[in-house]
C-alpha cells in the first residue's frame, strides 16, 4: 500500500479506523505537520538572508530566494497532498541544500566573483553563521520527518544512503580531507 493511501490530509480524522491504523495515521499526520513546518521555517530563514547574499553576488541572492520559495512551497504541497512523491521531493531537495551548505562551510565553493586568485583559485570555506545553522537544523528535521512517510523498502534505502553519506563525511574529516 502506498503512502498516498495511508495518509489522511491534515485535520481529517481517521473516522472508524482500527486503533493501530488510527495511531499510524496520527503519527503520519504529525510527521507531515512537523516536516512542513520545518521546511517553511528553513525557507523563511533563506528569504531573510537573501538580501545579504544579493550584496555578495546576485546569483547567490537569487539562489537563496529560490530555495526559500521552494521550501515554503514544499510545505504547502505536503500539507495539501501528503504522499511518497512530495515526501521524496522534500527529502532530496533538503538533502541537496544541506549538501551545498556542507561544502560551502567546509571546503568552499569555487564559483562567483570572489575567486581568490588570478590563477583560478577557489573561495575559502565560509564561517557557518547562526542563520545557516538554524536553516540546516530545520532541513535535517524535515528530512527525518519525511522519511517516516516513505514505504518501507524506499525508506530503508534512503536511510542507508544518508548513513553512508554521514559515514563518508566523518571519514573525510578524519583523513584531513576537509581542511
Amino acid at each position: 500500500m502506498s503512502i498516498e493511501t495511508e495518509i489522511q490530509p491534515v485535520g481529517s480524522p481517521a473516522v472508524g479506523a482500527p486503533p493501530a491504523v488510527a495511531a499510524k495515521c496520527s503519527a503520519s499526520r504529525r510527521a507531515v505537520a512537523l516536516g512542513a513546518f520545518t521546511s517553511a521555517y528553513a525557507g523563511l530563514v533563506h528569504l531573510v538572508v537573501a538580501p545579504e547574499h544579493l550584496g555578495h553576488w546576485w546569483v547567490f541572492g537569487v539562489f537563496m530566494i529560490a530555495v526559500g520559495v521552494g521550501q515554503i512551497g514544499l510545505a504547502g504541497w505536503v500539507l495539501r497532498r501528503p504522499g511518497t512523491s512530495s515526501a521524496m521531493v522534500g527529502i532530496l531537495g533538503s538533502l541537496a541544500i544541506v549538501a551545498v551548505y556542507f561544502v560551502a562551510h567546509t571546503r568552499g565553493i569555487d564559483i562567483g566573483p570572489a575567486g581568490d586568485d588570478g590563477h583560478g583559485g577557489g573561495h575559502d570555506a565560509e564561517t557557518a553563521g547562526p542563520a545557516a545553522i538554524a536553516a540546516t537544523v530545520g532541513e535535517l528535521v524535515t528530512i527525518g520527518a519525511f522519511i517516516t512517510l516513505l514505504p518501507l523498502m524506499l525508506r530503508r534505502r534512503v536511510v542507508n544512503l544518508l548513513g553512508a553519506l554521514g559515514l563518508g563525511a566523518w571519514a573525510l574529516w578524519l583523513l584531513g580531507g576537509l581542511g
Binding site: 570555506a125 545557516a132 545553522i133 553519506l165 554521514g166 563525511a169 566523518w170
Partner: peptide, 11 residues
C-alpha cells in the same frame, strides 16, 4: 551519522 556530520563539521 549524517546529521551530526552536517552540523558539527562546519560548526
Amino acid at each position: 551519522l549524517a546529521g551530526s556530520a552536517a552540523i558539527a563539521l562546519p560548526v
